[in-house]
């Protein structure tokens, strides 16, 4: 665990940090944060338990336990990262450990939306580029400067054109990635929709008139 955790807020346009590679396809959210740690009513203490079982199995050799990675903040992963359960506890645990952005071959849908909802941009790159990054990290430090405006990541000697969903990129740049207030701006439209939907009237047990 790093120094004091602060939740991201407002515009996110640049993320600079050291990369931490995690090799493997289909790494699911049960592995990121095993279910027993979901017995909590807030997310505060999840950071230290991230990858708990994988880390125990590897006895100190897991990337999240290596001394050289202790200040890393950009996670480099392979394909279908974050598959499985919808638990937001997974990105919350990564964020509380110190992860600020993730670059991978591909992400599971719900994991991706959860990351975006809490302010962790997720970028994709072709397999070859991901492997290049992961290999680079084997024997040296990879520091990346990520520029969301240009969707670019660069280090001293490497450059990558990152892919990110346009809606997510715009939200981070405008600072409107915390969706609640944006959604509530359309309060009248929401009320109209509620009144128009055929089934609201069908349902005696759930309708307002009960």
């Amino acid at each position: 665990m790093k120094s004091e955790f602060t939740q991201p807020i407002g515009k996110i346009s640049n993320i600079n940090g050291q990369c931490i590679p995690l090799i493997g396809n289909d790494i699911d959210t049960d592995r990121i944060i095993p279910a027993r740690f979901l017995k909590c009513v807030n997310f505060d203490s999840l950071g230290e338990s991230v990858f708990e079982d994988d880390r125990k199995t590897l006895k100190g050799r897991h990337p999240f336990d290596l001394e050289k990675n202790k200040n890393a903040s950009i996670l480099i992963v392979n394909s279908n990262f974050g598959c499985g359960s919808s638990r937001e506890h997974a990105p919350q645990a990564l964020m509380r450990w110190g992860i600020k952005a993730i670059i991978g071959e591909s992400f599971a849908d719900i994991f991706y939306s959860n990351c975006i909802a809490i302010g962790i941009p997720c970028f994709t790159l072709p397999k070859k580029s991901i492997e290049e990054m992961q290999n680079y990290c084997d024997n040296q430090f990879l520091f990346l400067e990520i520029d969301l405006k240009k969707s670019l990541a660069k280090s001293n000697d490497l450059n990558f054109n990152l892919e990110i969903r346009e809606s997510s990129r715009k939200m981070f740049l405008s600072g409107e990635w915390d969706a609640t207030s944006t959604l509530l701006e359309n309060e009248n439209l929401i009320e109209n929709k509620f009144n128009q939907l055929p089934y609201i009237k069908f349902n005696s047990q759930l309708s307002k008139s009960k």
Binding site: E88, I110, I118, S167, A179
Partner: peptide
Amino acid sequence: AFGIGTSQVRDVLASQTIAIN
């Protein structure tokens, strides 16, 4: 019908809507 994370649970409670592609 689809699964959502806790931040989207918050959004549904607050607005009965979510942002989704």
